[in-house]
């Protein structure tokens, strides 16, 4: 009797493991279906013009997300460009210059602390420290100086990207074959030459994948950007203009949206975010897996 129970118990357990594990794939599929079905009213009502419509005016039922698209792309790429030199330097420092030891270990943990600070706290901190500084720069250029805008959001976002890119790039460059490096040193290369002529070229795909994954992160980053971007649905004039990103417009307007098409249009923006980040992640992981293996 007891034996039979044990066999049954075991069968249930194995079944459970399989179901739950397959569930992760089903979950992703359900995410896509849910977003697609919920944004269908908007897709039907707005058509393809949704992507390049320049006015976002829910009161008059005009839904064009072009300003958010521009805001998202500028903010993400700008933050990626600002963070790139720092990420590469820190990754070289921790992966190539001092891969072992106590002090580099502390450095690594300190940089990891950047990942421990929640997004909303970054936004709050940026509003009180970075925004006033940016406001002064804007005054110097004789621009309107609200302090918040694309540039402020990108600056803070770039800090948030550093720990993520550093850990990805460090992993990639620490996999450089030792004999390649030693061959270069034996030929009389300086360390700089080994880095710029061996390590970076031989890992270029892995490093780009690291930045691609960081970009995916920047695109979906919500809270810090919502606090710092200035929330304006107009097309930005310059990099100091207040703007809106796809994620922050959802964060700000979703609970207040009235009417089916309005809510559904916001969900359509979410669907686009989901599809884009999924594609970026798939490509990025594929390249990194190839680079490391």
């Amino acid at each position: 009797m007891k034996n039979r129970w044990r066999i049954l118990e075991n069968k249930i357990f194995v079944r459970w493991l399989t179901i739950v594990s397959l569930g992760t794939m089903v979950l992703l599929l359900l995410f896509f279906i849910t977003l697609f079905v919920s944004s269908w009213p908007a897709i039907k009502a707005n058509g393809l013009g949704f992507l390049w419509g320049k006015t976002w005016d829910p009161v008059n039922n005009h839904y064009g997300m072009y300003p958010f698209l521009v805001g998202t792309l500028i903010t993400s790429f700008l933050s990626l460009i600002i963070s790139a030199p720092f990420s590469i330097a820190a990754a070289l420092f921790l992966g190539e210059y001092y891969p072992k030891g106590v002090i580099p270990g502390i450095f690594r943990n300190v940089i990891d602390l950047l990942a421990a600070i929640p997004s909303v706290v970054y936004g709050f901190w940026g509003l009180y420290t970075v925004a006033p500084i940016v406001s002064k720069i804007e005054l110097a250029f004789h621009l309107p100086a609200p302090g918040v805008g694309i540039f402020t959001a990108s600056l803070v976002l770039s800090i948030m990207l550093v720990p993520y890119s550093v850990s990805l790039i460090r992993q990639v460059i620490s996999m450089t074959p030792v004999n390649l490096k030693e061959a270069a040193y034996a030929l009389g290369s300086t360390r700089t030459e080994v880095i710029t002529k061996v390590i970076i070229p031989s890992n270029i795909s892995g490093i780009s994948a690291g930045f691609l994954l960081s970009l995916g992160r920047a695109l979906g980053e919500t809270m810090a950007v919502t606090i710092l971007i200035g929330n304006s649905p107009a097309l930005p004039h310059n990099i100091f203009s207040p703007s809106y990103t796809m994620a922050s417009v959802i964060a700000n307007e979703f609970t207040e949206a009235v009417g089916e098409v309005y809510t559904s249009s916001l969900i359509e923006i979410g669907l686009l975010l989901f599809v884009v980040t999924t594609i970026i992640n798939l490509i990025g992981r594929l390249i990194i897996k190839r680079a490391i293996a």
Binding site: S21, L22, T24, M25, L27, L28, L30, F31, T34, L35, S38, L213, G216, R217, L219, G220, E221, T222, A247, I250, A251, F254, L266, I267, G270, L273, F274, T277, T278, I280, N281, L282, R285
Partner: peptide, 27 residues
Amino acid sequence: IAERIAVAVDVLQGIPSIVIGIVIYVW
């Protein structure tokens, strides 16, 4: 199958958190 699930988990990790909020709102 395990490799596919691993990819799904990676993608899951990369989904913007706000999108998860929308889906749970609908569900």
